[in-house]
Amino acid sequence: MKTHYIGENNSILNNFISEIRDVKIQKDSLRFRRNIERIGEILSYELSKSLSYSGVYLETPLGKKKIQLPYNDIVLCSILRAGLPLHQGMLNYFDKAENAFISAYRHHPNKGEDFEIVVEYFASPEIENKTLLLADPMLATGQSLVAVYEAIKKHGTPKELHIVAVIASKEGVEFIEKHFPENTHLWIAAIDDKLNSKGYIVPGLGDAGDLAFGEKL
């Protein structure tokens, strides 16, 4: 797997990352969602450089001009519910992409810190031989992404696979490296050092789904 750590170089991305982490600013759900969306736009721009392009002649009012345009058949798949703002940011740039959605959540069978990932819902167009963009804002343990990918594989094999996340733990990155195809690309805005005992990223930002849409039962 090839990791593209976009946040390791200084850019305006740092501003949006700082605001989603800040305990005062992140309480504004509207602003939090918009910042995740903007991060999705930046990551999409960087990802777009790796797509396949071909020359196309365009007719303008004064003549013709050749321009290189991407021709990948893209399917954008987000993990519900936290992935929705990231999905929208990516869709702002890949506006011709087909859309897919999948659910995944942590189930604590013994009401302790141990958990398993449950995948219950998947709605998608055909993904066989297409470019799949798998979006999830928080890459903590990596177990959710692996469970989701195993579920998606039952419906077809994409030609290319790109994972897009906002914040990851080093442990999570190492985990998915072992479970995803070698030619997978990870596009990440920030990488933190560790997980706590509950499997949450530290320092991270908290629960992205709750911050974006409110606390759940």
Rank of each mutant, 00 (worst) to 15 (best):
Y71E: 05
L211Q: 13
P203N: 09
K64Q: 08
I39Q: 02
K198M: 08
D136H: 04
N72R: 01
D73S: 12
D210Q: 10
S18D: 13
L217I: 12
E41M: 14
R31V: 10
N183C: 02
P61D: 03
L91S: 05
E59C: 06
A208K: 03
D192I: 11
L91H: 04
V23K: 12
Y57W: 03
K130H: 08
H162T: 05
E171I: 15
R38C: 08
F101H: 01
D193V: 08
Q26A: 08
A208P: 06
R21N: 11
I117S: 01
S11Y: 04
K66D: 03
I163K: 01
G156A: 10
L145W: 02
R34N: 05
N196C: 10
L84Q: 07
A82W: 07
S103N: 03
N72M: 03
K153L: 14
L195A: 15
K2N: 15
A151L: 10
F122R: 05
L84M: 11
P109G: 07
A208I: 04
L58P: 04
A135Q: 10
N99Y: 01
E19S: 05
I6V: 15
R21L: 09
V173W: 02
Y45W: 09
Y121G: 06
D192K: 09
S103Y: 00
V119S: 00
L80K: 10
I167H: 05
I74N: 01
K65E: 09
I12T: 14
P61G: 02
F16G: 00
E160Y: 14
N129M: 06
L133Q: 10
H4P: 06
G89C: 07
K153R: 14
Y105K: 11
K216N: 12
N129E: 14
S52F: 05
L161N: 06
Y200L: 12
K27L: 13
L62N: 08
N72W: 08
K178E: 15
S78Q: 07
E150R: 01
T3H: 08
I102Q: 00
G63R: 12
R38E: 14
I117C: 04
K130D: 08
P70R: 05
H4E: 13
H185K: 12
I102A: 00
G89F: 02
L161D: 01
G89W: 01
N196H: 11
T184P: 06
P109E: 10
N99G: 06
F32M: 13
G63V: 12
I74Q: 01
S29L: 06
E120D: 15
V148K: 00
Q68A: 07
S169C: 13
I79F: 04
R38S: 12
P158M: 04
Y45T: 08
N92C: 01
N15Y: 15
A135K: 01
K154P: 03
T131Y: 04
V202E: 15
Y105V: 02
R21G: 03
N72D: 15
A140N: 10
E128W: 04
L217F: 07
V119H: 00
L30G: 06
S50V: 04
T184L: 05
I42S: 02
I176W: 12
L43M: 11
I25N: 03
